[in-house]
Amino acid sequence: MSATWSLNDVRPRERHAFWRETLTTAFTPLRPEPVDGGRWGDGASLRGDVTTRPLGQLNIATIRSCAQQNVHGAAEVRRSDEEVFFVNLIVRGRCFGEQQGRECDLGPASIGIFDARRPFRLTYTDDWDAISVRVPTRDAAMVAWATSAPTSRRVAADRGTGRLLAGVMTGLARADGSDIDGTREALVDAFLLLLGAAASGTGGAMPSHAEVDAQLHDRIRAHVRDTLREGPVEPNDVARRFHISVRKLHQLFEQSDRSFGRTVLAMRVDAVARDLDAGSPATLSELAATWGFADASHLHRAFRAHTGRAPGEYRRTRLAA
């Protein structure tokens, strides 16, 4: 369900506080300030509106306002209740972004990426419109470029993969929620894959098939890891989730050192090992049920095959350490 905030009906003297609360609710804790130390006087000159809509694990927003600085300082970082970063497409106006000593100049048809786990400052010099996608850091880890800890990064939105990414963001911002219900997961996947390709440092070039497959392989592994507790992880269900064929799913894992089935089994064993490392008092039968093994015997065989030790021996070794 979408939500909209507007300054149109807010009394001038209340606009600054209302706008600060709006930005914090819609995005992340932000402190709006006049540009160059100026003042908004009685607040009448402060204008703006925001509309947000959830899109799976993402959140997409359209925003328009006047010249201002939006500061996400150390105090705002401490107030943040989730770890996210933002992908901002400038539609109108100009924004100067600063984060960790890096600067980027964002005009129309450019995209800026900012990590809300660290302080940043966005300076808008005139009236502006933007589309912003809020992405949980956990999902950022699924795209190839996230390990470089992107800060104040600019992506050209008028060529190459950046242009495709901007097109997806614009389409999502304009679509009515009911228009995308049937393709929500596919759109999220498309956005993240294009984001990874656009920001990977390839100069705007289209990613190779191998690069796309590698990103998809990593996203599937992350999905499997997160759903182990929910029961069987069936190839048909996973393929449907990522809108690929079962054959394609198996091909992705044939290119690595383990098949899809062996990958799932190894992840279950790793999960049990983590519980044992943490000193879990659960019995082997309870651990087997928690992590999707048929029974304790199945867990015993799989654990020994993957680690070279029986789970009981592994537990005793850890306790003695």
Rank of each mutant, 00 (worst) to 15 (best):
L165R: 09
L165F: 04
L165I: 10
A166W: 05
A166Y: 06
A166P: 05
G167E: 10
G167K: 08
G167I: 05
V168F: 00
V168P: 01
V168E: 09
V168L: 15
M169F: 05
M169I: 07
M169E: 13
T170Q: 11
T170Y: 07
T170E: 10
T170V: 09
L172Q: 07
A173F: 11
R174Q: 13
R174D: 12
A175Q: 08
D176M: 06
D176L: 06
D176A: 14
S178K: 03
S178E: 14
D179W: 05
D181N: 05
D181Y: 00
G182D: 14
G182N: 13
G182L: 12
G182Y: 08
T183W: 02
T183N: 07
R184T: 15
A186Q: 10
A186G: 06
A186Y: 02
A186H: 06
V188R: 11
V188W: 01
D189E: 15
D189P: 01
D189A: 15
A190G: 12
A190R: 14
A190Q: 15
A190E: 12
F191P: 04
F191R: 03
L192D: 12
L193H: 03
L193P: 00
L194T: 10
L194M: 11
L194Y: 04
L194W: 01
G196Y: 01
G196P: 07
G196W: 00
G196H: 02
A197H: 04
A198E: 04
A198H: 05
S200T: 01
S200W: 01
G201Y: 03
G201M: 06
G201K: 08
T202Q: 14
T202M: 07
G203V: 08
G203F: 05
G204Q: 12
A205V: 02
A205F: 02
M206C: 06
P207K: 12
H209R: 14
H209L: 07
H209D: 15
A210W: 03
A210N: 09
E211F: 01
E211Q: 15
V212P: 02
V212S: 08
V212D: 00
V212A: 11
V212Y: 05
D213W: 03
D213N: 13
D213L: 03
D213K: 11
A214I: 03
Q215W: 02
Q215R: 02
L216M: 14
L216I: 04
H217R: 09
H217P: 01
D218V: 02
D218I: 00
R219I: 01
I220M: 10
I220E: 11
I220S: 13
R221I: 13
R221L: 14
R221N: 05
R221S: 11
A222K: 00
H223C: 08
H223I: 01
V224Y: 11
V224E: 10
R225N: 09
D226K: 10
D226C: 07
T227A: 13
L228P: 11
L228W: 09
R229W: 07
E230I: 04
P232W: 00
P232T: 08
V233L: 11
V233F: 03
E234F: 00
E234H: 07
E234N: 08
E234Y: 01
P235A: 06
N236G: 11
N236A: 14
N236I: 05
